[in-house]
Design a binder for these strands. Structure first.
Lengths: 221, 221
DNA sequence: TTTTGTGAACTAGTTCACAGCT
DNA sequence: AGCTGTGAACTAGTTCACAAAA
């Protein structure tokens, strides 16, 4: 109905589970669009990609009324809306801190570029790495120049791929530079201010969770 | 159907949120142990690592009564219990499919070895890679030999790090080889039988979720 | 005392089911 | 007719609060 007189922090009202699903829906729509499908109902989308139709409708309803009753959703139109909702309608510039194996692999990861993320630069503290590039050509800069370059290059998201011991220090530096979104691959809990979004991928936790299932039985995700 | 109270699939009754937290608790206990702390109360553990005390006690209560009233938990003892619960009291042998940038980085990721995971081998379909090793010395084998080698080497967990297009095919091969736990890094939904545990790390979803927060994040303080 | 272990209360998230629009 | 959008019902997960134990 209205989206006028809301008290602002939209991102705070939407759960992470919902934003993750929006990303999944967008991927599904990209597939459908490439297959030439023009419209899709929430039921058909749910069946095809093993989702729940009501869930899809509820998730979308947070942002507007994108469907047409009796018809469903126009694929291209919903795609456009989702890209706008997810902030993918403008270039998202990304820097990676940590030019180790993982950082370098992420720098050249094709999946990032695909949906419009631009991996602009890597940072490291080891002087022998500075000035080099990833295989894909992403330059490695000195972490000392972090704040200056992040501003100059208008970096929106920073990926942290450094050893656990240096992670909190790096995150502090990233926060101090004014970055509001961090994807962290280091193990362990990290503290950030409330206005910074930190998302962590903890490989050890993932592996140990699998180990548990291996030890005690079975389930599916 | 019978509903006996003996060794039913325990893993099925424990939520993923709980198993993930158990892994976090173990990491906290390792830190405390290294600092020479002998006992810790759920409250102190919660305060120090920003967790909830009741949550910790509830999570542990699924598996037994490990605490001492009025005292708390003996760090070494709880550590041992958690390692046993998570199946880390025996060697966990891991193979990685996909010797690209990401697969190779994961093969040498120090965090895996740390908690007792043994990255035994890599697999790839590109013939020019077969016979080579990761920097850390993990050998690359032909995916054609997957089933045979997985059995011979008693692989428990398989990590899938291949392009999206080949992911489902690879997962089918992994399932056919009898592997019951898969950590997947490819984007998109994958289907596995109920008795196989699939855990996916979707980097695109993570990045798009951050993009959303960047686009709509709070401005109030 | 202190702190556990746990039912009860609460909160978040999902699914149902249907009114109402096309 | 078909399908969306949404309150209501349900399910899962978290936190509270306290009796019981050391």
């Amino acid at each position: 109905m209205n989206e006028q007189n809301k008290p602002r922090p939209l991102a705070e009202q939407i759960s992470e589970l919902t934003t993750n699903r929006l990303s999944v829906y967008l991927r599904c729509l990209n597939e459908l669009d490439q297959s030439g499908v023009r419209t899709i109902s929430s039921k058909a989308l749910a069946d095809q990609f093993h989702l729940n139709a009501a869930q899809i409708r509820k998730d979308l309803a947070y942002f507007g009324e994108f469907g047409v009753r009796g018809v469903g959703y126009y694929v291209k139109e919903l795609k456009r809306h989702l890209r706008q909702i997810l902030g993918l309608d403008r270039e998202v510039r990304v820097a990676i801190v940590g030019a180790g194996n993982l950082g370098l692999a992420l720098a050249d990861y094709p999946g990032f570029r695909q949906e419009g993320f631009d991996i602009v630069m890597l940072f490291d503290s080891q002087s022998q790495k500075i000035g080099l590039h990833s295989r894909g050509g992403v330059p490695i800069h000195d972490i000392q120049d972090f704040k200056r370059l992040v501003h100059r290059e208008k970096i929106g998201i920073v990926v942290v791929a450094v050893p656990a011991a240096s992670a909190q220090g790096v995150v502090n530096k990233v926060v101090a530079a004014g970055v509001k979104a961090i994807l962290n691959f280091s193990p362990g809990a990290l503290r950030v201010p409330d206005d910074v979004k930190l998302k962590s991928v903890d490989l050890t936790v993932s592996m140990e969770s699998l180990s548990f299932h291996l030890a005690w039985g079975d389930t599916t995700e």
